[in-house]
Amino acid sequence: MRELLVISGKGGTGKTSLVGGFAVLAENKILTDCDVDAADLHLLLKPTVRETREFYGSKKAVLDHERCTGCGVCVQACRFGAINMGKGRGNTKVQIDPISCEGCAVCSHACPWGAIAMKDNLSGYWFISDTPYGPLVHARLGVAEENSGKLVTRVRREARSIAEDQGLDYIITDGPPGIGCPVISSISGVDLALIVTEPTVAGTHDMERILELARHFDTKTMVCINKYDLDEGKAEEIERYCRDEGIQVAGKIPFDEEVVNALARGLPAVAPADNGFNQREGKASKAIRELWMKVSSYLK
C-alpha cells in the first residue's frame, strides 16, 4: 500500500481537480481529503456517507459563575487573551472567549475557587463514504475551530486501516494549502508528495516553501505545473529550478476551460474510460492521464 499526497503551498493551483482526475484513473485505491477546513473533493466525487463520527479536538475552559468570585487570577494566568474582566461586578465580571481559548487549562489549574472546568468541545466531524470511484475518508472541521492537524491525523489513520483491511494499493490524499499544522500532519510518512504549482510569481514562491518543508520531513517529491501555458516563460523557470534541485517535473497541464466546465457540472476533469474519452478527450484530461502514469509507475 502506497500513499500519495497532493499539495501545493499556494491555494487554488488545482490540487482537488487533479485528485478528482486520479480518482477516475487509479484502480484499487482509497481517497482522502485532508483539507479539513475547506474540503472540496466531495463536490467532485459525490460520496454517499456511510459513517459519521464526531471529532473532539482540544477542551475549552468553561466558567462556573456560581463559584467565581471575580478575583482575576485566571485573567492574569491566560497568555492567549481569552479571559477578560467585563463590566459586571463580582462573579459576573469574568468572561471567557471560547474562540481565543487555546485549551491549555492553565486558568482551570490556577483558579483558587475551582470555578473553571475544561469541557470537551465538539470540533468537527469525519466521514467514511462510498463514491463511484472507491471509498473516501473526509472531514469537516467546525467553524473557527482549532486542531486541524489532529483531525488530519484521524482521517489518515482511518484511511490506512481501511486500505489494509481491503488490501488496497493506494491512498490518494487531497492536501491542505500552506505549510502549517494540517500540512505537517498530512505529509509525515507519505511515499510521495506531488506538488502542484502554477506559472506565477506566487506559485513559484510557494512551491519553494513547500519543497523546503518536504525536505525537512525527508519526503520524496515530484512537481506538476498546472496551467503551464498561461505563462510559458515562468513555466520554464520552474522546470529549470526543479532540474537544479534534482526534482522531477512529472507533468505539465495546459489551461483548459473544459476543467472549469466539468467542475461547474460537478464532475472530475477526466472522463471515465467507458465514456469514449479517446474520441474527444480534452488537452488537460490527457495531460492528467500522462501524469498519473508517471506518478503510479514511481509508486509501484
Binding site: 491555494g11 487554488g12 475547506a38 474562540i99 472541521l141 473557527a144 475551530e145 486541524s148 494549502p177 500552506g178
Partner: peptide
Amino acid sequence: APPGTSCPVVASLK
C-alpha cells in the same frame, strides 16, 4: 488573510 476557516484565519480576522 490566509485561506481556510481555522485558527490562523480567525487570528487574522479577529
